[in-house]
Design a binder for these strands. Structure first.
Lengths: 203, 203
DNA sequence: GCCGTGATGACACGGAGTGACGTCGTCATC
DNA sequence: GATGACGACGTCACTCCGTGTCATCACGGC
């Protein structure tokens, strides 16, 4: 059960590399095969060639294994917000940041994200965790906006609103097979704005 | 351990009444005394004069004991939305519903709600559950709006937006000791609207 | 060649949550 | 009034999640 690496190319260590990635792959396989609730952490660890204790060293709990890819997302968005052009409105800064991030990270991932979303949608605890991730993201954006000179209360409102638009746009994008994500993001932002403050007489 | 009722006025049954309420009260006391993570379900059940198994018959999990009072909230809001005056905009319907509900349910609860919110804020799992409750509430509102003739996509956007405004307003109201909740709700809605679509030339 | 570091294995443990079954008042029916 | 269904709770046994602690072993620096 020690899982020594017999031969792995040039460099070999005592342990196979990328334990977290192996755990994530094993978890995704098992979750799609037999469901999230139907697979235990020991199963995941065993398939990855590791032990249960090691799983919890890489992930604070069972749900977190599904969010490995998004770990750096808050930092990315924060840096994009921090480097946004100064002439934009607060909301423009946030949406611009989402757009830039989505172009760089999401374009090739649609199938993976769809599979992952099916798993998350099947379990209440996973949806809860996803919602918390969104709120945490909003918190990071709030701080980044404050660093751009946006007032604290205004920054919080804009961040929460922007994350909400992003969340809905992501859902719609994954549901529709043809559109591109920036387009969905734009149209979602536009439609939401219309509903919040209907325009007087433009089309 | 059977907790027979010795004497309870006219009608007496084998078990003391209001098991769920007793569990809620015991949980609130213990959580404020020694923290959420520091109290176990057996402790709560024992203080309420019940067993662990009975706790889980009344609440699907440990977190849920903090949301007993809000169980009927989705139904209340849904009925308010369903009975809203027809001349209102979709968002007007939702905000009107929140206002009516808040007037009837929240006014006397501020101290209780503040204590509860301190507990929820101290634990990640509780914040996650609270976020899920909000999204579930948005889902119910979406259906109620659809019953009022609002299109599905539009209803979803309005519901999520309205719940977001409500959530932020509730937080601000509990933070400030003087304001009344409808006022905070109004001002939050107004400020959020300003940020989403800045007006051209009004102040 | 020695030692610090870092990742992992091995073991033990408490708490969350569930399934199955037993107990005993309450209520309706006869 | 006796009987049986019903409902709320107790009791027991179990799995799984998550954590603390210590031992093990490769690697890199000296």
């Amino acid at each position: 059960m020690t899982c020594r690496v017999i031969s792995y190319g040039e460099r070999m260590s005592r342990w196979a590399p990328d334990a977290a990635l192996r755990l994530e792959r094993a978890a995704l396989e098992l979750f799609t095969e037999q469901g999230y609730a139907g697979t235990s952490v020991p199963e995941i660890a065993t398939r990855a060639g590791l032990t249960t204790r090691t799983f919890f060293r890489h992930f604070p709990d069972k749900r977190e294994v599904l969010f490995l890819r998004e770990r750096e997302l808050p930092a990315v968005v924060a840096s994009l917000v921090a480097g946004a052009p100064a002439f934009l409105s607060p909301l423009g800064i946030v949406m611009h940041g989402f757009e830039a991030m989505a172009a760089g990270m999401f374009e090739g991932w649609r199938p993976d994200l769809q599979a992952r979303r099916a798993i998350i949608g099947s379990d209440q605890g996973l949806r809860e965790r996803e919602l918390l991730k969104n709120v945490l993201l909003a918190g990071v954006i709030t701080e980044a906006l404050a660093g751009q000179g946006v007032g604290g209360r205004e920054a919080r409102l804009v961040a929460r609103y922007g994350v909400l638009v992003f969340e809905i746009a992501l859902t719609d994008w994954l549901d529709s097979d043809s559109d591109t994500f920036p387009d969905v993001l734009h149209s979602t932002a536009y439609r939401m704005g219309q509903l919040v403050r209907p325009a007087r007489q433009d089309e």
